[in-house]
Design a protein around this nucleic acid. Structure first.
Lengths: 204, 204, 204, 204
DNA sequence: GATGAATGAGGCTTCATTCAT
DNA sequence: TATGAATGAAGCCTCATTCAT
């Protein structure tokens, strides 16, 4: 067994990611995924119980790949809260940019959380809920740390800032999806500077 | 003719909005829309050429209803840039909250811009592109106005701030969709205060 | 509406009966039924929820057509118990013979009661249980009547005789299915004479 | 080679019998048989050319097991025709009762004779034809013997009685399949007594 | 001989759309 | 104009069978 069960699964997932990104969940036909993965139609079902199951696997793959991991480690680094916040932003934007070719998956995932079969819906919603909570938690901690260090003002609400930042990052990519010329990296940088200024105690 | 052609169209659109919100585009069957609108299946086709056409009409209806109109008028009001920014945020959040029951439509619209039939995709993308551009334009103008009035610092990039704000607003509702307890209004308010602080020349 | 919903249903059922008889449940494809009924593939589903549902409808149709109705009326006629028993047998055999071209349906129904999807299985088993009970009941009554009239001996068990007679009639057709030359009518007549002799008090 | 080819074949056949009885021919998947036999899926094909071939092997196994053999020997015993007829019935019922757990196979076999692939169908039909002929032949001989001995009346048709008896035995088990409380043994006994009375010259 | 991963033909079913009324 | 019966294209999924190991 040269190729492990897991490697084969990943091979299918990556093919599926491409096709789902191109055609959406409903627009995708299993045959195309199989063809793209270079396997037979039936083979997919040796690894995934159904189209929905495969789609969810793609979701999990995407979440892992999209650099959330990096987020944690960066937040844990040394340095000022501001610099870590900026580093986190830069890292995130960079890893998302790398996956821009399958970005439309995100929109499909969102839609799946809204209206796929009720079973899938709950699964997606729950996963997103967790993901956002965790992500907001990391950013909020970072801000809280900045407050404790006396770097940020104490009257800000870390959770609100975190939620809005996380959302802004997300939404910049959404806008970049609609507009070729839109540069989410620079935009994020410019914006974060203002936010950090707004958070900070001293202004130069 | 007691009911005009347009009234009937709207009746269908509103029925469709409900069903599309509940089941998504692909999950929706024309028969259910017809049933919900209290008309025959075939009748829909007297008013809309196809399911996609109807879906796009729902999209246009949603965009109009979702208070973008208010945005323009508020931005045009008098008062400080900061206060207008805050008023705009409040108004926007309020009108979105009113449509929370069909919020999932937005996710379907995003998905449609990513992967529906290529013709529809372009139409949605283009519409979103315009909508975001216009929205960002309004906010950017407001910020530029603040700079010119000497209220905001001159080294900020109004376009970046506008894009991020617009995105944050969007994304707060997305997070609210995933989490019952999430309060997008308060979050937006808290966040906007920090951003305004970051933008402003003087701090109280 | 020249053709009522029910007429159309029957048209489909009769087409289905032919095909199911020819190919069995699993061997039958819906497309062939549709073709045979002269309608489109999808149309069947306007009248029957599924292949299984249609098959069960064929079952009910068969049970009704196969002359069980006549049984009741004959058993209720006047005359000696013996003559009624013989008349019943003759009538039954005759109406079964008329349906000999779709006789193999019966074997499919039996098989369905044994091993189709568990939901169908129970439905078929229950229906057969009822049908046999009712049929045995009629014959047993007739025999009991013969005992009461002093025509038959009082030490026979009417239920046992009824069950065996009903079974024998069934099984004669089964044997006729396997063998072209087998004549179930004459066989039944010859046999019933012996049974009646066995039941009767006086022998000529 | 501790286990001979034939022993392995039987092991597979018995596993197959169970699964076919539970799920029917079409409802059975080869994988489950393999699993039940404790072997690999591919291994079945080392012993049987196809699913149908295996099914036919199960049929032959069933026919052998179901005590037809005993029939012959009992019919050949000494004693009155009546007593041999009763002994035959008792023996048959007893051995069928022992196989009641796989009784539903019989219904599958019947169905196979009606509607499996035309090649299989002919094979099953032919086998059933032979089996019934042989069985009827044995019973008819016994009755003919009774006539010759002066035990039974000479105006009965041995072939008809044999066919009906054979059928009744079959059909009592069918009815027992549909109804838990149905007792085929007692029913057969009660019935046969009447038939024997009907056949006999003198009545006590 | 034994295995089980891979396959793809094939069938049920759905549903947008049409069109005769 | 309104309808809903009829349609058939299209896709998910199953599973008997094969064959490389």
């Amino acid at each position: 067994m040269v190729i492990s069960k897991n490697e084969k699964k990943n091979q299918i997932i990556e093919a599926a990611a491409q096709i789902f990104a191109k055609n959406g969940f409903s627009g995708t036909i299993m045959a195309e995924i199989a063809h793209c993965a270079g396997i037979g139609k039936g083979t997919i079902y040796e690894y995934f119980k159904s189209k929905e199951e495969l789609f969810f696997a793609v979701f999990e793959w995407y979440m892992k790949e999209s650099g959330a991991a990096a987020t944690v480690s960066i937040a844990a680094l040394g340095g000022s809260a501001s610099s870590r916040l900026m580093a986190l932003s830069e890292s995130l934007m960079a890893s998302w940019l790398e996956m821009m070719d399958v970005y439309s998956l995100v929109m499909e995932f969102w839609a799946a959380s809204a209206s796929s079969s009720s079973q899938m819906r709950e699964r997606f919603k729950e996963a997103f809920r967790r993901a956002y909570q965790e992500f907001r938690g990391i950013v909020a901690s970072l801000i809280r740390d900045g407050i404790e260090r006396g770097e940020f003002q104490s009257d800000v609400n870390p959770e609100s800032i975190a939620a809005a930042l996380v959302g802004a990052w997300d939404a910049l990519f959404l806008q970049a999806w609609f507009e070729e010329n839109f540069d989410p990296l620079t935009t994020a940088r410019n914006f974060l500077e203002v936010v950090i200024k707004g958070l900070s105690k001293n202004r130069s």
